[in-house]
């Protein structure tokens, strides 16, 4: 496979890989590195593309595994620090941009979710994949995907309401 062909295959979903990586790793730089790494891995595997039902789903699974490995490794400690710094900064935001801020809250609330719910929510509500696709990507049962999704959505709503009333009071 030529590079241009490969890029044509990969281009449509590289942003999705990046966003999933960022959802899991939080830091943009980490996510960029992870995406590069995954694209490279894909490139080295490009001869076996035909074997996979969907290259996109395969790439998403790779991203998931790669990021979870990253989080498990030592570097995860650094990432958490980055995140807590970011939260600090968030609390100092001015009142006038509160409307925009509450949108940002969603991001922070999502960061607090368990990894699996994070991924399900990202894949469904941001990337708008089907349940079956998500089940395949995450190697879960479709019913388990629904349960996780429902839980994630309810948690986000509850925390959002909490933060909102707290912010006003």
């Amino acid at each position: 496979m030529q590079q241009s062909e490969f890029l044509n295959v990969v281009m449509p979903f590289k942003d999705k890989l990046f966003r999933l990586a960022k959802r899991l790793l939080v830091s943009t730089e980490e996510a960029e590195d992870a995406t590069q790494e995954i694209l490279l891995k894909l490139w080295t595997k490009n001869t076996s593309f035909d074997r996979y039902k969907s290259v996109e789903a395969f790439a998403m699974t790779m991203t998931k595994n790669f990021c979870l490995d990253r989080l498990k490794s030592k570097q995860a400690g650094n990432l958490k620090l980055v995140h807590s710094n970011y939260q600090e900064k968030g609390s100092l935001l001015q009142k006038q941009i509160e409307a925009k801020d509450s949108v940002n809250w969603v991001e922070r609330i999502m960061a607090e979710l368990p990894e699996q719910q994070k991924m399900v929510l990202q894949l469904r509500d941001v990337e708008e994949y089907d349940y079956d696709e998500i089940a395949e990507m995450l190697d879960m049962q479709p019913t388990a995907v629904r349960v996780a999704l429902s839980r994630a959505r309810k948690t986000v709503r509850e925390k959002l309401v909490q933060k909102h009333s707290y912010g006003i009071g």
């Binding site: 590079q3 966003r19 941001v126």
Partner: peptide
């Protein structure tokens, strides 16, 4: 109103792009 931030965030989150060059070469 309470649901608005959620959906607005999800719509917005989809805009984020991988801006780096794919450095395959």
């Amino acid at each position: 109103e309470q649901y608005a931030p959620m959906f607005r965030y999800f719509s917005g989150a989809k805009e984020e792009q991988f801006t780096q060059q794919v450095a395959l070469d």
